[in-house]
Write a protein that binds this DNA or RNA. Structure first.
Lengths: 242, 242
DNA sequence: CGACGCTTTGAGGAGATTCAAGACACGTGG
DNA sequence: CCACGTGTCTTGAATCTCCTCAAAGCGTCG
């Protein structure tokens, strides 16, 4: 069976810059001019690798820059004083990581690889430099950051819905993000465990499992461990729209 | 009894600019140089008034700029397709409103006055201009925006805790924000209803009421309708730290 | 092949919701 | 100034959703 782990096809290309990266319409370059992308390309630090379970940055460590995921996937975790942990978000290729450290210059969250991954990073001291040279780029960063705010608002809204609605929304959201990256939106492999999904959605992992199998019984999806196939996308979305 | 509605003492001063505003160390100017504050002052549109219940901006309307609250208080609401509403945040003087529209140029949220309020606003087309002239200022906006992200993460974390923990946290958080603005942190008047608190915390308004009176029975607070007095702040904070 | 971790499934229990009804506060008009 | 009406707040009882605890199945990797 095909493995749906996302891998950038250009990782084998040694001369990749932001200009010829295949994620350019998802990542920071999206919407920038040629010359701006070229300038960005000169400042970016490429080909950083992490294996499954390895930390990209720790909560409490100084902010060293923004990170753009090239391939693989990661999870963004937050911890409070009581040791309670929250899986803030799953990160897919083309998505930006690190905003949690920009405000105070200290990371509030910990980023951990869910599988082998490759990322680029834009050093902190170069962000201000960019802001000076390219207002459009700095405005774009601001937009990206605000976008994260919007998606957090959606997350809070979701936390008010029932467990079934949350799981339906999670499946559809992941599906959309796979599609945006050129992968099948109907059948894919989840790189995260039930435990991690549950943590992210605010429900017990047993509940995640129960509901996925309930959806299977209703012929909305087909699930076997980490492999997932959407059968009736429309009804699945009606599910949490109504 | 003193009314705890926050009012900027300088509203009667006709020549207020960012340079002599008494909220300068809470609002956008915080951390900026004299000349930067002066430049900001020239771009800002002042003395906009809204009465209780009036809308500052609507979800779906085009982004027209960032708003800094001078006096009074507001609530930031979000609505999903199903008509479900979420009270995203309460806004106090010195806080920035409008990030929800910066990413897509269309507001995702609706901002509504909780009482008579006064605000300044920085028009959208001037934000890019500012970014060009003052990298520090644009970087500051980015920081502010990321800060919002951090506080949303905290909000999601809070949504995992029990109802009692949420109410305790809400009281302490409001208390801290009053203190930061120079008002008593131990006794104040809530400008929002139980319904609005419940919506914000993700619990029924009956539960808010029950728990506040439970806290009163435990001699942690004293509550009478909208008037609130903190008796034992330490134990109240232990409450959700342990 | 065995051990470990992840997933599934079941039963009982706790916390919060919903519905309902009464108390209180505030503003309006007589 | 008081009576009235409306909206907010409080309190109670029944219900429900989801959690916790427990144990068994499945897969994977050394």
């Amino acid at each position: 069976m095909t493995d749906f782990i996302i891998t950038s096809s250009s990782t084998t290309n040694t001369a990749v810059t932001c200009t010829n990266c295949n994620l350019d319409n998802l990542c920071i370059p999206k919407g920038l001019s040629h010359s701006e992308v070229a300038e960005l390309g000169l400042l970016v630090n490429r080909n950083n690798i992490r294996q499954k379970g390895e930390v990209i940055y720790h909560a409490g460590s100084p902010f060293r820059g923004l990170i753009a995921l090239r391939s693989g996937s990661a999870k963004l975790m937050s911890f409070d004083q009581t040791g309670n942990e929250l899986l803030v978000d799953f990160i897919l290729p083309g998505e930006i990581l690190g905003f949690d450290g920009l405000s105070s210059q200290i990371h509030n969250c910990t980023a951990i690889a869910l599988e082998t991954l490759n990322y680029c990073y834009l050093p902190a001291h170069k962000i201000e430099q960019l802001a000076a040279n390219s207002p459009a780029l700095s405005y774009m960063l601001l937009q990206r950051s605000c976008n994260q705010f919007d998606s957090q608002v959606n997350k809070v809204m979701l936390s008010r819905r029932t467990a079934e609605e949350r799981v339906a929304c999670f499946i559809l959201h992941i599906s959309d993000r796979f599609q945006l990256r050129g992968y099948s939106e109907m059948e894919f492999r989840l790189s995260m465990s039930r435990e991690e999904i549950g943590n992210h959605l605010g429900i017990a992992h047993e509940t995640v499992s129960r509901i996925m199998h309930l959806f299977q019984a209703r012929k909305l999806i087909q699930v076997k461990s980490k492999q997932l196939k959407i059968i009736n996308k429309k009804e699945l979305s009606n599910f949490y729209t109504t």
